[in-house]
């Protein structure tokens, strides 16, 4: 069981992650040149096509050898390689601060792993925290930024309760770029998760929703007469644990997860339920790979 104090990414995991790459099914226009082959023509070493010169073209692209032979100004086109925008949205509400490891830490690990993949592939990685009003997080790029990314992740603390929809909306307003959004949350919002996800859909982002649940939530190990106190709004629920109650709870949970799954798949989003007992490397290398986020 990984402890909450160990490094987010172990060296072995890092080595494994280096072989992976973030994939998107949608074509996005990166701002900077990256390692990603784009459908756009551009500057790279890979030849794509020729075309006639039109005024305004970069003279540097003229194929002088052809001009010598044909006396025509022909421009040599190369394939453009682009970077990918990768946003990791971590729900840092207090409800995430449960479990062993805490769901928040699990979310951080997941974000770190995928962020690292992005960094290695020279993608544009941005870690955003939901629920806290902290400053805009930096945009990271390149392998060297790993430590900054980890710093940013480490700095995330469970914060005040902000509705999921509110924070997602804020994110969308701030980041108009397209790319991959990895929303790591427990979806435990009493107002419902749907508005939040709709904002993301509207951004035409490639959205991955990872619902992190702790073992205690999936299979509660409680007994007796209890007064359950909500960690976020101090709401209480008095229960006496009994088999039907537990069965009913599990049913409700299943309804929640399957509802989210359906909601996402209808809108072209990817949904993944993550148990905090599954190691992050397994989640990345097995589950997310299957879903096509990495390859």
């Amino acid at each position: 069981m990984p402890s909450n104090n160990s490094p987010l990414l172990s060296p072995e995991l890092l080595a494994k992650l280096e072989r992976l790459e973030l994939v998107t099914r949608k074509i996005f226009r990166g701002r900077l040149k990256g390692e990603r082959r784009s459908r756009r023509k551009g500057q790279s070493i890979e030849f794509a096509d020729f075309r006639s010169y039109v005024p305004g073209d970069d003279l540097r692209l003229l194929d002088w050898n052809l001009y010598a032979r044909l006396e025509k100004l022909i421009i040599k086109l190369f394939l453009e390689e682009e970077d990918l925008h990768f946003y990791a949205l971590i729900d840092a509400s207090r409800s995430m601060d449960f479990g062993d490891p805490t769901k928040l830490r699990y979310a951080k690990q997941l974000a770190a792993a995928l962020g690292y993949i992005g960094l290695v592939r020279a993608d544009r990685v941005k870690i955003e925290t939901l629920g806290t009003n902290n400053a805009v997080s930096p945009v990271l790029r390149g392998r060297r930024s790993l430590w900054r990314m980890l710093e940013v992740l480490d700095a995330i603390e469970p914060g005040d309760q902000v509705p999921l929809a509110e924070s997602v909306k804020r994110f969308c307003l701030r980041n108009s770029g397209r790319g991959i959004v990895l929303l790591i949350t427990d979806l435990m919002d009493k107002d419902g998760y749907e508005p939040a996800l709709r904002y993301l859909v509207a951004q035409r982002l490639d959205v991955y929703v990872v619902q992190v649940l702790s073992k205690e939530e999936i299979d509660p190990d409680i007994v007796g007469d209890l007064k359950l106190v909500d960690s976020e709004d101090d709401d209480t629920a008095e229960i006496t644990v009994s088999a039907p109650l537990l069965a009913r709870y599990k049913k409700t949970l299943a309804a929640l997860t399957s509802g989210a799954q359906e909601f996402c798949s209808r809108r072209g989003m990817n949904y993944l339920l993550a148990n905090n007992q599954i190691p992050v490397e397994d989640l990345v290398s097995l589950y997310l790979r299957k879903r096509g986020l990495v390859r």
Binding site: M188, K190, V229, S231, A237, I239, L245, Y249, T252
Partner: peptide, 18 residues
């Protein structure tokens, strides 16, 4: 009743209602 802090009473409330 023993108070117990849980991540969210969201699911529990729903279960109790049922």
């Amino acid at each position: 009743r023993t108070p117990l802090e849980v991540p969210s009473t969201y699911l529990w409330q729903k279960s109790i209602e049922d």
